[in-house]
C-alpha cells in the first residue's frame, strides 16, 4: 500500500504538470454537458491485482475492492471509513482515474473513467489530497506552490493570482503566502496542499487520510478547512479517514471492510451500532463509547449520540425526570 501511495503521489505531480491539456478541452461544449446530479457513481466496482514474491513470480491475486456500488451526489460531504487494508484508499483512487476498475465502472460527473479522452476532464473535476504533506508540495514559497496547478492549466496570469489568493484565504493560509513550506507545520502544509487543489477549481475533492500524520491541532485545522470548502464553496468533499471524530458532521458515511461497503448511512445511523464498529476495528468517538456504556448499564438515553452537547442534554433530561419522579 505504501508503494501504491508513493506511485499515486508522484502521479499527482505528473497530473498537475499535465493538466494544461485540460484547457484544450475546456471550451468544447461536448465535454461540459454532463450535468448529472451524481458527482460520482460506481457500478459493481472490483479491483484486483497480482501479488508477486521477491523474485517477481506471481503468487496469487488480491481483491482490494470487491463489488462496490456507490453514488455520491453533488455538494455532499461524504466520509469513507475503514481500517488499514479495507480498500478505502484503493476505491478512492478510482474516483479520479488514478486506478481503473478490473470489473464494473466508475463515472465522474457522468464520464466513464476508462474513457481516455476524458481523463484530464475527470482529474480537473475531482482533485485529490494525499496523506503525507511533504510529498505534495513542490514550490519554494507557498503562493508559488498553490499557483502551480492553475499555471499548468494555462490560466491567464492575473487570474492565477486571483485563484491563489482566494484558495489560500479559503484554507486560512493567506498570511503565509510568502513563507517557505519548509517552515510550516504539518497541518499548515496540508492546508497548502488543499489550496493547491482548489486553485484548479475542482467540483469535488477527495482527501485520502489527510490528517493521519498530523497532531491534534493540525487535524482540526484540516477538517475545518474541508468543512468550509463544502459549506461555503459547495464543493463535494470525500474524506477518507479512520478517525471517527472527523466524520460526525458528514452527510453520509460509508464503512468499508475487506473491499466491500459493510455499513452506510447518516453518522447517527452508523454510530448507533457501536459493537459492529468495534468489530470492524474502528475507533469510536469517546462520547459515543461513553453513551453506549451507560445504555448498557440501563440508562435510558438515545442510541447514536455523537457530540458532547447531545450526551449532556440527554443526561440532564434524565436527571430532571428522576428528580421530579422522586417528589
Amino acid at each position: 500500500m505504501r508503494f501504491c501511495n508513493k506511485i499515486a503521489d508522484s502521479l499527482k505531480v505528473i497530473i498537475r504538470k499535465k493538466n494544461y491539456m485540460i484547457t484544450k478541452h475546456k471550451d468544447n461544449p461536448d465535454n461540459m454537458n454532463n450535468n448529472s446530479s451524481h458527482m460520482i457513481h460506481t457500478e459493481n466496482v472490483r479491483f484486483q491485482y497480482v501479488k508477486h514474491d521477491e523474485d517477481g513470480n506471481p503468487v496469487g491475486t488480491v481483491t482490494a475492492v470487491d463489488g462496490v456500488d456507490m453514488t455520491i451526489n453533488r455538494g455532499e460531504f461524504i466520509a469513507i471509513l475503514g481500517h488499514n487494508g479495507s480498500g478505502k484508499s484503493t476505491l478512492a483512487k478510482h474516483f479520479n482515474a488514478l486506478l481503473y476498475p478490473s470489473e464494473g465502472a466508475v463515472f465522474v460527473d457522468g464520464m466513464d473513467t476508462t474513457d481516455d479522452d476524458k481523463v484530464w476532464d475527470i482529474r480537473q473535476k475531482a482533485g485529490m489530497v494525499f496523506q503525507n504533506p511533504d510529498n505534495q508540495i513542490i514550490g519554494q514559497i507557498v503562493e508559488e506552490d498553490v499557483g502551480f496547478g492553475p499555471e499548468n492549466m494555462g490560466v491567464p496570469t492575473d487570474e492565477i493570482w486571483e485563484r491563489v489568493n482566494e484558495s489560500l484565504k479559503t484554507v486560512g493560509m493567506y498570511e503565509y503566502r510568502k513563507a517557505s513550506p519548509n517552515h510550516l507545520s504539518g497541518g499548515q502544509k496540508q492546508r497548502v496542499s488543499i489550496a493547491g487543489v482548489i486553485a484548479m477549481h475542482p467540483e469535488c475533492i477527495i482527501m485520502d487520510e489527510p490528517t493521519a500524520m498530523l497532531d491534534p491541532s493540525g487535524r482540526k485545522e484540516v477538517i475545518r478547512a474541508a468543512r468550509a470548502l463544502n459549506d461555503v464553496e459547495g464543493i463535494t468533499v470525500i474524506l477518507i479517514t479512520h478517525y471517527m471524530e472527523e466524520v460526525v458532521h458528514a452527510d453520509r458515511i460509508f464503512v468499508m471492510d475487506k473491499g466491500r461497503v459493510v455499513m452506510s448511512g447518516t453518522p447517527r445511523e452508523v454510530f448507533s451500532q457501536v459493537d459492529k464498529l468495534q468489530e470492524l476495528r474502528l475507533d469510536v468517538p469517546q462520547v459515543t463509547l461513553l453513551a453506549d456504556s451507560l445504555r448498557k448499564k440501563g440508562l435510558d438515553i438515545p442510541a447514536g449520540i455523537l457530540t458532547r452537547e447531545e450526551l449532556i442534554s440527554a443526561l440532564a433530561d434524565l436527571k430532571h425526570k428522576q428528580d421530579s419522579d422522586r417528589q
Binding site: D215, P216, S217, Q286, V287, R308, I312, L315
Partner: peptide, 19 residues
Amino acid sequence: GLAAPQVTYIMKDLKEKGF
C-alpha cells in the same frame, strides 16, 4: 495546542450542569 481527553470535558460539562 493540546487538550485533555474528551471524557474529562464531558465530566466538566456535567459538573457545570449541577451534576
